[in-house]
Simulated scan of single mutants.
Amino acid sequence: MTPPLQQTTPDELTQAPSGALTTEMERIPDWNKLTRADEVAIRRHDGSLSSGRIDMLSMDRKVFWIIQNNGKGRTMIEKDEDTTVFRRASGRRNEGHTESYRI
Rank of each mutant, 00 (worst) to 15 (best):
D60V: 01
E99Y: 06
R93N: 05
F64K: 02
S50Q: 13
D30K: 08
L13R: 06
P17I: 00
E81F: 05
R87L: 02
F86R: 09
P10C: 00
S50I: 06
N94T: 08
Q7I: 07
R43Q: 09
W31F: 12
V40C: 05
N70E: 15
D46L: 12
W65A: 11
K62W: 01
T35S: 09
S51D: 11
N94S: 10
R102I: 11
I42G: 04
M76Q: 14
M76L: 12
G19S: 06
P4L: 14
G73L: 11
D60Y: 02
E26S: 11
S50H: 15
N69V: 04
T84Q: 14
W65C: 07
V85I: 15
I67L: 07
E78K: 13
A20T: 07
K62G: 10
D46R: 11
R74Y: 01
R88N: 03
L13I: 15
A16W: 03
A37I: 00
E81G: 11
H97N: 13
T2S: 01
D38M: 07
Q7R: 08
G96H: 08
R74D: 07
E24T: 15
G52V: 07
L57E: 01
D60R: 00
E26M: 10
L34E: 09
A89P: 01
D60T: 01
G73S: 10
S18W: 08
D38I: 02
R27S: 12
G47A: 05
P3C: 03
M1K: 04
L49S: 05
N32D: 13
Q15W: 04
S90Y: 09
R87K: 14
R88A: 01
Q7K: 06
W31I: 02
I42E: 05
A89M: 12
E24P: 01
F64L: 01
T9G: 01
R43I: 07
R88I: 07
E99I: 02
W31H: 15
M25V: 04
I54Q: 06
S50D: 12
P10Y: 02
S18F: 05
P4W: 12
N70I: 02
A20P: 00
E99N: 05
R36P: 00
S100F: 10
T14V: 03
L49H: 02
I54V: 11
S48W: 05
L34R: 07
I77R: 06
H97V: 07
T84V: 15
P17D: 05
R44L: 09
D60N: 08
M59V: 09
G19W: 09
V63W: 06
L57G: 03
H45E: 08
W31D: 05
T22D: 13
A89N: 14
A41S: 15
L13A: 13
F86P: 12
